[in-house]
Design a binder for these strands. Structure first.
Length: 633
DNA sequence: ACGGTTAATACG
DNA sequence: TCGTATTAA
């Protein structure tokens, strides 16, 4: 249910930018022959030509709809080009679209706060940029109003008289406009510039809405498509909303919207205006009631979050009809594939963005084989996420078995799974260089950046599972060729200093059984310390043979997996080390901890599970406070 | 037993 | 907190 947010006092300038038939544009860029042609993107085309997930505007003219199958599309538009979504591991692979999406974010995040709302949409808070523009080069003084901006659609502006662009230019430059409208004008110009930049740098067109809040911006971003933008002056809001069908409002496209229509006879947003806030609260609860009352008046306080990356990663697949999975082996084989993809994705998130996911969740849809009875839901299950493909696969299978157990209850009946998905959530940034353990290991005056810290397991298994943390210590770790190259760059380090550094860093953290997370060391990652499994959450597996052990038994986790700080990590300055090893704090030998200075000991103890019914105060420690998500008001 | 896949949010 | 439900693109 939606909830109203307190709205800021000052007028804001908010934009919603939305790519035009995004997947199609991505494919058209990959294959320019498709440009200007009726085109659709389909996934899995063996059944009825596949399902359409994006349709070009040329194809829409023929009546091709997103809900169609490839075969249908061919019927109404024989000349249509159907491009398939890439397939990996026998499932749709959306990576090309994801990375195209980040191209946009990279461009759009250059002017003000930017929120990645989906793979192809962003919100921008341009308030500051607009204010600045108003001070320095207000539109009324601008000799040449940016051409793209004059193509804007201005809500409430009479469109039937004279040259449209002239009247838009006149509106944008109006000297007698009120402050709010002037800000919007600046916003419109900035967005126009950004959209041109997006086109120039990515070859993608987009549409946008510019308004005083997210709701209105989103509402109009799709109003004039493709490749156009629409502005909502305050003065136009009421007229615009009164006649707007209730279902067009974000959040009202589903059951809530239907209920408004069916139960209260509310067909348009205007119809909502006649209901007192208290009435709406009676029907839908305090939160939703207030929210409804406000949105009917164009009021929405939602802030644009400063977030360029997704909050979770998931992958799944459906197994419709005859494809349903009917035994553990087929579930396992699919689950393994899904987990492989998920593992790859969180691993690259770690490498590229220094973020760690903490929770693994499994969802499934199931029906019971023999009885065609209750459509009972397959429960979703989650557990701490341990890094490493094998670990994720193991854990996901366990989650499935647990879910299946709950699903079946005591009955001993056949079952079938019609969809499976795994996701990784609760993703946190790794604060770099802030941990005292890191400072201890590195020394207070170390010139070595966190990215340079070398933490390695001996590559020779016969050396056992002792873990060493060492700055490029050759006797202990045979460096990769790339490491050797990088090492040259550091040769100017003071020799004396380096020797000292090595002494300290090569302090053996022995017998940790290879399972502590160095990231835990580096970042004190987990505020989640209440259960044993969670301490495992950052464990990685060794690139070598996966242990087939019980995931719950930490002592059997003898492996750790590196992540590559060199690859695709431009910010990593001079990255001397090739990898960071993860191991499990829980498994640190207490004797080793005792050798550490008291403040480090305290820090480590802070990571380790508190007594059973400890208060939530453990979360207030300086360590875990790094990990509190940014508070929103 | 078909639009599939991926996300985000709110509630209890 | 987890698990569910709703919504959206």
């Amino acid at each position: 249910m939606p909830v109203a947010r307190p709205e800021p006092q000052e007028p804001r300038v908010i934009a919603h930018v939305d790519m035009d038939c995004f997947y199609v544009q991505v494919e058209q860029r990959r294959n320019p022959a498709l440009r200007g042609q009726p085109t659709a993107v389909v996934q899995y085309n063996d059944w009825k030509g596949g399902g359409l997930i994006a349709v070009s505007y040329e194809a829409r003219k023929f009546g091709v709809k997103r809900s169609m199958r490839g075969d249908e599309a061919k019927m109404v538009c024989p000349s249509i080009n159907l491009v398939q979504v890439p397939v990996a591991r026998d499932k749709a692979d959306l990576n090309v679209y994801r990375s195209a999406g980040s191209e946009l974010v990279a461009i759009l995040s250059t002017k003000g706060k930017c929120e990645r709302a989906s793979i192809d949409e962003v919100y921008l808070d341009l308030t500051d940029a607009a204010k600045e523009m108003l001070l320095e080069s207000p539109p009324e003084l601008l000799e040449l109003i940016f051409e793209e901006a004059t193509k804007s659609n201005i809500l409430g502006l009479p469109s039937d008289i004279g040259n449209r662009e002239d009247s838009v230019r006149a509106w944008l430059c109006r000297a007698d406009a009120d402050y709010q409208d002037k800000l919007l004008s600046c916003g419109a110009i900035i967005v126009a510039q950004l959209r041109v930049k997006v086109l120039e740098e990515t070859e993608f067109t987009c549409s946008a809405g510019i308004a005083h809040n997210k709701m209105l911006a989103k509402l109009v971003s799709g109003m004039h498509k493709p490749a156009q933008q629409t502005v909502v002056p305050s003065s136009a809001v009421q007229d615009f909303l009164v006649s707007l069908p209730i279902k067009k409002m974000k959040q009202l496209g589903g059951k809530l919207g239907s209920s408004l229509q069916d139960d209260l006879g509310v067909k348009t947003v205007g119809d909502l205006l006649s209901f007192a806030e208290e009435k709406l609260q009676e029907y839908y609860g305090v939160n939703t009631g207030t929210w409804l009352w406000k949105i009917a008046r164009g009021i929405s306080g939602e802030e644009v979050e400063d977030r360029l990356l997704p909050k979770s990663h998931g992958c799944g697949k459906t197994f419709p009809g005859p494809k349903a999975l009917r035994n553990n082996a087929s579930v396992k084989s699919w689950l393994d594939r899904l987990c492989e993809e998920l593992s790859e994705r969180i691993q690259s998130d770690l490498n590229q963005n220094k973020r760690i996911a903490q929770t693994l969740t499994l969802h499934a849809r199931a029906s019971k084989g023999n009885e065609c009875d209750s459509i009972k839901k397959f429960p979703s299950k989650s557990c701490p996420l341990r890094y490493g493909t094998g670990k994720i696969q193991e854990d996901a299978m366990k989650l499935f078995e647990s879910g299946l157990h709950d699903f079946l209850g005591s009955q001993n009946t056949k079952w079938s799974i019609t969809s499976l998905s795994v996701s990784a959530s609760k993703i946190f940034d790794i604060p770099s260089g802030t941990s005292s353990i890191l400072r201890y290991i590195k020394g207070p005056n170390s010139t070595v950046s966190p990215a340079n810290l070398d933490c390695s397991l001996p590559q020779d298994p016969s050396l056992g599972n002792k873990l060493y943390i060492t700055p490029n210590h050759e006797e202990q770790c045979e460096p990769s060729s790339s490491e050797k190259e990088d090492r040259g760059k550091n040769s100017n380090l003071d020799k004396q200093h380096q020797v000292k550094e090595e002494k300290r860093m090569s302090k053996k953290l022995t017998d940790v059984k290879g399972t502590c997370s160095i990231l835990k060391f580096l970042s004190q990652s987990s505020p989640v310390v209440n259960e044993k499994r969670k301490l495992d959450s950052l464990t990685c597996s060794h690139p070598g043979p996966e242990s087939s052990s019980e995931p719950n038994k930490a002592e059997e986790h003898k492996s750790a997996q590196p992540f590559d700080r060199n690859k695709s990590n431009p910010s990593g300055s001079n990255s001397a080390s090739s990898s960071t090893w993860m191991f499990n704090v829980e498994d640190i030998d207490p004797a080793v901890v005792e050798e550490l200075p008291p403040e480090i000991q305290r820090e480590i103890h802070g990571w380790i599970r508190p007594p059973k019914h400890s208060s939530s105060k453990t979360r207030g420690s300086t360590i875990s406070s790094y990990f509190q998500p940014a508070k929103r008001s």
